[in-house]
């Protein structure tokens, strides 16, 4: 355990978490270079690094910085955001199955998107607007329905289950009624994809995410205390209800930012905190390792989806398989270690 003190601010760092974060960051950098090299026009690692440093011009510069880098940057930033938003929800609800989907965001945004695609037949911007509106409105409805002299974790979970189930039914019905081609297009959006991500989206999304990550870091201490239970946290001076509302807003906003740019890449928020926790061997959920695990998972999945899969697939499908498979492997190793 390292403790950094500077006047009134003290930061406590767990040594193993630090090492895990460093290793994950190195892996992110390595996969990023690999992704920048690969494509229909192959480049060497030297060319990529010098293009990033500003040493190349013309075609190589355009390929690396203008075409491939936005996508790589988006995968890293969005992956980190999803990892943290899942960690926030799992810690707050003390439940390893929790993610922002719990509060209905995922189903709500899918409903909004489906209505735009299948009923209104709207543009891409309308699609994004519909998804955000649907997700946010659902989250607000779930929170209000669960609120009764404070929103308790268990009640939030149950109300979330109910509302999500109803929206899921609407989604299934909409998909059933649509004609096949449109339904498949909608399902592809629902899987989440980084196709067509531009620098503009990365910069705006990245700025939002940076602010939200800072807020999450500020809330992380009371969050860890609330893992002990509401009563214990309250007796330590944590204002439980406002803190919980803050955590919900930060977690949902992180997911919403990603959804706006890339569609619902769902599984990262569920699995990244669990992978990070097993790698760092921390007692509870911690934010920084979850962010790095999410970034690596999203980046690697996008590389596989583009370059390894026989036909290009939405990144969401690969994240599910990669994340699920890796979590399964970790559980397997952990079980053998305990023998």
């Amino acid at each position: 355990m390292l403790v950094l003190r500077r006047r009134r601010v003290a930061v406590r760092l767990d040594r193993r978490s630090l090492v895990v974060c460093a290793v994950l960051a190195a892996a992110v950098a390595a996969v990023a270079v690999l992704a920048l090299m690969t494509g229909s026009y192959q480049l060497g690692p030297g060319q990529v690094v010098s293009a990033l440093a500003g040493g190349e011009s013309g075609l190589v510069h355009d390929i690396v910085v203008e075409w491939r880098l936005p996508r790589v940057a988006a995968a890293v930033v969005f992956g980190a955001a999803l990892g943290v938003s899942g960690a926030v929800f799992q810690s707050m609800l003390r439940n390893p199955l929790a993610d922002p989907g719990i509060i209905g965001f995922a189903q709500g945004s899918y409903t909004g998107a489906l209505i735009v695609i299948l009923v209104v037949n709207g543009s891409y911007l309308q699609l994004v607007g519909g998804a955000l509106l649907g997700g946010m409105a659902t989250a607000v409805v779930v929170y209000l329905l669960a609120y009764r002299g404070g929103a308790r974790g268990f009640r939030l979970i149950i109300v979330g289950i109910g509302v999500s189930a109803m929206l899921g039914s609407i989604n299934t019905w909409l998909i059933l009624q649509a004609d096949l081609e449109q339904a498949m297009a909608a399902a592809a959006w629902g899987a989440g994809s980084l196709n067509g991500v531009s620098w503009g989206q990365v910069v705006i999304g990245g700025a939002c995410i940076a602010v939200l990550l800072l807020l999450a870091a500020m809330l992380s201490r009371p969050m860890r205390q609330m893992e002990l239970g509401d009563d214990a946290a309250a007796s330590h001076g944590v204002r439980v209800s406002p803190t919980r509302l803050g955590l919900i807003v930060v977690g949902v906003a992180l997911t919403a930012t990603v959804t706006a740019a890339a569609g619902p890449i769902a599984f990262i928020s569920l699995v990244a905190p669990q992978i990070a926790r097993r790698l760092a061997r921390t007692a509870g959920i911690t934010l920084a390792p979850a962010a790095f695990a999410g970034a690596l998972l999203c980046l690697a999945a996008d590389y596989i989806a583009q370059h390894v899969a026989p036909t290009p697939l939405p990144v969401g499908i690969i994240t599910v398989m990669l994340g699920g498979g890796y979590l399964g492997w970790l559980l397997f190793v952990e079980a053998r270690r305990r023998l």
Binding site: A187, A191, V271, T319, V320, M321, A335
Partner: peptide
């Protein structure tokens, strides 16, 4: 807890494979 997570992880791998099969 480990059982549930194992179920989630296996379900995720199969779900992804199923979705890839369906979308193509």
């Amino acid at each position: 807890v480990v059982m549930v997570l194992a179920g989630v992880s296996v379900g995720a791998v199969l779900g992804g494979a199923r979705e890839a099969l369906q979308l193509t």
